[in-house]
Every structure is written in C-alpha cells, then in structure tokens.
C-alpha cells in the first residue's frame, strides 16, 4: 500500500465513520458542509444501491407458493412497468379499491402474485443490521427507476382527494403530552431542531426538497429508510402511539406530501445524515 493510497483510505474511513461525531459539536454551517462533502465523495454512489441490487434480484426471482416473480406487478402504469411508477404514487387502484402507496402496493403484488402471506412478507418492515427487509429492498429498486421523473398526482379519483384532505388535516393535528403536530416543526420556513434543518412541508419548495430524496440511506443508522418508516418515526418523536403500516393516516400524509411536492423531480433514494 503506497503512502498516497494510505492517506486516501484513511480519509475515506474518517469521512464515512467518524464525520458525524465531529460534525455534531461544530457550528451548523460546517455540519452542513461536512455532509455535503460526504455526499460529494460518494459521487453517484450511494449505499442505497446495495438495497436496489437486492430488490432487483427479488423482483425477478420466482418465489412463494406460486413460484412466481413480480414481473407482472402493476404499480399503476400497467403490469411490469416500473420506470416512472413511483412518480405517480400514491394512487387509487381498482383491483383493491384502495388508495395505495408504493409499499402497500408491493404487499398486494407479493401476496397476490407470489402467494406469500402478508405477515410473512412484513415480518421485517424496517431493516436493522443483520435483519434485512425485503420490502425496503423492493422499494429502493422501484423508487430508483423514477429518478429524474417529476411527481405527478392529478387526484382524479375522489378517494385520492379524500386521502389528500385527510393528510392535510393530520398535518395540523395537535395531540399527546407535548401538544405536537407535524406543523409544529414543519410549518414555518428556515427553522431547525438543534442543528437539523427542518423542511417546511406545507409549501411546494419544502415538500419537494424532502419528498424527492425519500426513501434515503441514513448515514447515522447505516440503513435505507422508507417513507413509512419516516412517518412512523416522526410520530414516535411526537410522543404519539405507533402509526400502523399502510394505515389511512400513513397513506393520507404521504399523499399530502407528494401532492404538495408535485412537479418536483425525484432524486431518490437519497443520502441523509
């Protein structure tokens, strides 16, 4: 190993391993700079690719009692079409009679096409180290196929409009011992919690900034995190009970955020601190 390489390797390790510890005690601007530097070092690479690759393999593999792959899965643009599919979700699906986000639609495909029981597939909804989530891998694969596509949510079906309305109302719903709502932290421009900048999610600008980069690889957790995870963890911090996966509030808030971010160009999976 030559000296130059050693220095470079050390740099890579420092940046990927200990950067956040250093960033936490510095002023906010340098933390933002350090995260930008980290992103730049990766260039087009993102550890989310590891999830995408796993998802791609799962998509094409014949599995479950029906020994079928997912190539006939209809995500709203017709069976097997994944390019651009994430940019028009959530949406209403005639076969289930429901508004579904990407994650709940993937559950429909896995259960109906492959015959895998819902509870088996959802045993690991959110990955944690050695416990890997098939749902997150498939999500990453499908999401990446919408990179560069603008979010388009016409809300033509009344159920889609109802989901949006519900999400909009939930965004302001104050409850729990701390009286928190989504709007408490995400309702004003240019605010932050500690050093974490907060996107104003009830404006197009803020919603685009956030929504177009989710799902995202969280550097601090070493995991790819989905939108369902993001919402559930926000409610945990609001001191509320646990948001149920695929519940009407989960779908409604996702619809509200996606519609508010409409026109934003997808760059997910992103990289977050």
């Amino acid at each position: 190993m030559n000296t130059r390489f050693a220095a470079r390797l050390l740099y890579t390790m420092l940046a990927s391993g200990t950067l956040l510890l250093a960033g936490a005690v510095r002023a906010d601007t340098s933390t933002q700079d350090a995260i930008a530097e980290y992103r730049e070092m990766f260039g087009d690479d993102n550890p989310a690719e590891l999830w995408q690759a796993r998802g791609e393999a799962l998509w094409h593999e014949a599995r479950g009692p029906q020994k079928a792959n997912l190539e006939a899965c209809d995500l709203g643009l017709g069976p097997g079409v994944i390019a651009g599919a994430y940019a028009q979700l959530p949406r209403w699906f005639a076969d289930t009679g429901q508004v579904q986000d990407l994650e709940t639609r993937l559950v429909t495909c896995v259960t109906s096409l492959q015959g895998i029981p819902r509870d088996d597939f959802l045993k690991v909804k959110f990955g944690d180290g050695e416990k890997k989530s098939e749902l997150e891998a498939l999500t990453a694969y499908v999401v990446a196929a919408s990179r560069g596509k603008p979010l388009t949510l016409p809300l033509k079906h009344p159920a889609e409009q109802a989901a949006f309305d519900l999400g909009k109302a939930v965004f302001r719903y104050r409850a729990g011992p701390h009286d928190f709502a989504c709007a408490t932290c995400h309702g004003e421009p240019g605010k932050r919690i500690r050093l974490q900048e907060l996107p104003q999610l009830n404006t197009a600008l803020g919603a685009r900034e956030a929504y177009t980069h989710w799902p995202a690889y969280r550097i601090s957790q070493g995991e790819l995190r989905s939108m369902e995870w993001r919402l559930q963890d926000c409610f945990r911090q609001q001191r509320l009970p646990q948001l149920k996966f695929g519940s009407e509030v989960a779908i409604g808030l996702t619809m509200y955020l996606a519609k508010t971010a409409e026109g934003g160009v997808l760059a997910a999976p992103g990289i977050k601190r």
Partner: peptide, 21 residues
C-alpha cells in the same frame, strides 16, 4: 379534523397509549 381516522391508524406502544390521540 381527523380524530376518528387517527384512532383507526395507530396502535398503543409501551407508555404511548391510544389515549394520547
């Protein structure tokens, strides 16, 4: 004001009970 939908969409977890909604 989505109180009913909130009730349907959450489940109690440890000290974060449903009464908090």
């Amino acid at each position: 004001y989505p109180a009913a939908a909130m009730q349907r969409s959450f489940e109690a977890k440890k000290q974060a009970g449903m009464d908090r909604l």
